[in-house]
Design a protein around this nucleic acid. Sequence first.
DNA 1: CGTTGGGTTGAACCCACTCAATACGCGTGG
DNA 2: CCACGCGTATTGAGTGGGTTCAACCCAACG
Lengths: 265, 265
Amino acid sequence: MHTATLHAESASRPPMPTTSALPAPSRSMARPDAGTVCARVNESLKLLADSVEVQRRIVHAGDTVFQGGQGFQCLYIINSGFFKTLNVAADGREQVVGLHFKGDWMGFDGIAHGQYGCDAIAMDTGEVWSVRYDTLLLAAARQPALLGLLHAAMSREISRDRDSLLSLGTLPADARVADFLRYWAESLSQRGLRADQITLRMTRAEIGNYLGMTLESVSRALSRMARSNVIRFTEKGRRDLCIASTEALASFIQAAMTPASRVLQ
Amino acid sequence: MHTATLHAESASRPPMPTTSALPAPSRSMARPDAGTVCARVNESLKLLADSVEVQRRIVHAGDTVFQGGQGFQCLYIINSGFFKTLNVAADGREQVVGLHFKGDWMGFDGIAHGQYGCDAIAMDTGEVWSVRYDTLLLAAARQPALLGLLHAAMSREISRDRDSLLSLGTLPADARVADFLRYWAESLSQRGLRADQITLRMTRAEIGNYLGMTLESVSRALSRMARSNVIRFTEKGRRDLCIASTEALASFIQAAMTPASRVLQ
DNA sequence: CGTTGGGTTGAACCCACTCAATACGCGTGG
DNA sequence: CCACGCGTATTGAGTGGGTTCAACCCAACG
């Protein structure tokens, strides 16, 4: 799928921009490991609970946290559970634009327009905290670390959305599904949960919508991955699955990208 | 293309969430008109220039503003010109994830990770301002409006990314190209530029990459739009084109979404 | 038990990709 | 000046990946 590089210069990169006596940029992007991320999430939640007044709410699968079009007042922070955000176009098209886990924030898109731009929906039982944006800012004036939390959360959200765009734009169906599993497992392990055995909280239709394809394609992709022993379904239901190894997943993605991947039908 | 609604309840929406004696959410999203947006952009730039030390830099087509992997220090604000941001995967896949115009900020994705997550590249001659993130925060302590600017810019970025995801995930090729033109025209008119006559600063390959399709598909889509009199190419080059009317564009998008759109080949 | 929602799998179709030929604009240099 | 190369754009023919349509299975539930 259109793997042509966009730039002839991408091999030998152009010289450094204006302000830089900085170390050479390394593309390998040194991800922080799961443990530190988990610690950061917990510390952030603690700091937040100590510094500002948070409203706690228990939600169940299908509950709406906020809706697109609704007036913006609060930001929502996930204490536990799994959530999706749904973007709805004027003509009725709808698209799952984000999956959110413990420590993630939701509702940023409301800041600029004064109203939320998408629906946030719980995919399981969980607890969300809400903080009024204005009181958060007031608190941040005395406690600058709060501002750091906010900005980091927004920044991560932007990075994540762009990774989704990259996946949507450059990966074929099978690789997208595999990459989706990889992302889900990574998110779990970063929160200190076991990532080898994951239970999807979404139907095939929701996954397909999130990945820009049909539910049948998702089903077929999962079947192929199971046949290739990259994943294994547990006895109870086709919602729970095991990921044999992260390496196998990665190599499956890589294999699915090359046209010469029509093995095992 | 998978237009099945994800939720049976989407017609009759679920009852209001927890905290809401608010007006009923209207999905129509009351966009601010072009004039007010243009004023906001100019006021923001002025406020920024007055409140913090900005470094100005003139760039030309192809210049790199910052690179993925590079250490994060500054945020960049576009004073004039056109820019793209490019996300590069570890395996070499690259994807244009954003187009940026006057007043837009770039570099947000560097806040969380300490290094930029994508490349920012000028598509034309222009001027970018850079402000150190730390000094911006210091200035914002005395001048809270600065914080408002920053947050609004980040919030808009998130909204925009999600609109891109919606487009990538739900629209067929022709509609994506048309929607791309609509977005470009809207961006121009919001900045006080004439939007009926636009000159694309990108090759077909770049547009295709941004929209997740091949350059040939872009070319065909544009040709079909020209044949349908939705756009018209100017004499000089196929980079410049006129948009007959915004309504024609919208109806073209709508038509391209239905399978029964095989008119005018 | 019948119904309903979710999941799998097959067969046929079709949109978008691939490959290829052609054309155009532009700068360079003979 | 034209020739040449190069990057870009257009268009056609053919292919294939993913969709569409359909049948079927399974578990939950009234």
